[in-house]
Design a protein around this nucleic acid. Sequence first.
DNA 1: CGGATCTTTGAGCGGGGTCAAATTAGGTGG
DNA 2: CCACCTAATTTGACCCCGCTCAAAGATCCG
Lengths: 239, 239
Amino acid sequence: MDTAFAPSMIEAPHPRNDLAALPELDIEQLQRHMLVTQRKVRAGQYLYRNGQPFHALYLVHAGFLKTCELTVDGREQVTGFRMRGDLLGVESIGLAVHTCDAVALDDSVIWELAYPPVLNACLHVPELQARLAAALAEEIRRDRAWMLSIATLPAEQRVASFLLDLAARLARLGFSARHFILRMGRADIASFLALKHETVSRALSHLERLGHISVQRREVKLLDVAALRSLVGLPCTVQ
Amino acid sequence: MDTAFAPSMIEAPHPRNDLAALPELDIEQLQRHMLVTQRKVRAGQYLYRNGQPFHALYLVHAGFLKTCELTVDGREQVTGFRMRGDLLGVESIGLAVHTCDAVALDDSVIWELAYPPVLNACLHVPELQARLAAALAEEIRRDRAWMLSIATLPAEQRVASFLLDLAARLARLGFSARHFILRMGRADIASFLALKHETVSRALSHLERLGHISVQRREVKLLDVAALRSLVGLPCTVQ
DNA sequence: CGGATCTTTGAGCGGGGTCAAATTAGGTGG
DNA sequence: CCACCTAATTTGACCCCGCTCAAAGATCCG
């Protein structure tokens, strides 16, 4: 069981094992000041669901998850994909229950930080407080960047932008930015990009025909990062 | 000069004068623990701009502002409209410079909260810390709700949703939810809703033809709130 | 091997964008 | 106070990108 719990992140030439290197939150520092429990979530299972009582934040240690908003009338929207170092549940701070779903797309290992205790720890460790605030702000900036892309870019460029963003995040974690396996289906990408899955599929096919990428189902290779960057209006220099 | 600085919020049958009633932040509590300076911003002027050093959060005391994201290649996106009780600048926490613009759409009065001092105050006042965290989380939820609307609703329903949201926020401040003056132009609404200004104009005209609202340039009356709510998939009950 | 799910591709349509012009406010100076 | 100018808004006509509907592979699992 537990031995089989190795999240399937392939293509990791330089994996880092220290979360401390991440700007977000330092798990060891957290453990010094509060109870941190480990939780494992199998692919397809919920970390938390809309309406469940909110009592903790979650720091992704390994694996891959998506967060979804949903409405009473059945509309659904993927609001983000989360990986190692990302903090989940922050959108429910100040509320009694969670307001969205978090679903594992791959077997995942999560550090659970009981919520009121987190605030107490922050009171005693100023640096921790600053980091928590910064993590929330980073979340806001991420959402704002998404808004900008969705509102101003056509379909194909949204897809290109998505691939570049994913690549950059993988690179920060020490994985290959040029060759990776998508852990989500076309429908999830489409929802996230406010498109339909057929459109995402067509965009990927077209980017491949242009020679910018190579795609075979969920395996993606970025062949011409400069071309992708210029496509979405970014400077062509690496990173 | 100063006497002329009366933000033009008309239609205020039950205006509240206590910000303490707002769930976000209590200004008097803040003043007890840190320096809070007042700042006035004329309509059309920037409260802060992309690239300027970040050294404070801003609490809107009166007036009306918009926040805009912008890219190197000239794309622009209105990410929100801010009014009394809203906290600005949070998206830049953890950074050295602001990452977006905040522009007054109406003469506004702003409380400036120097940033590192805010954190210090939070260390001494647990409740303040919890409120700051909650304010950031509320910002995230606001963005997520917007994402959901943009990604899943057609143009006319986005406009209806926008009007309902604005009405609800005005109501929370004690203003009329049924009759108000838009402080932003069609282009700003369009940008916020990821549409073009002609489309917003057409949607408003159509909602008027349906008898749900009445529009004359920037003056809006909501004639049939229940119809608007059912249009965007919300329960028809008030609030 | 067979069934379910995911992905790709095609054909046709429609909502919203684009371009253009008319109309209306609003501001300013005579 | 009014004429003029500028900017905001509205409306129309047309077109195109992305959606809808449909069917055909691919892949994975039992």
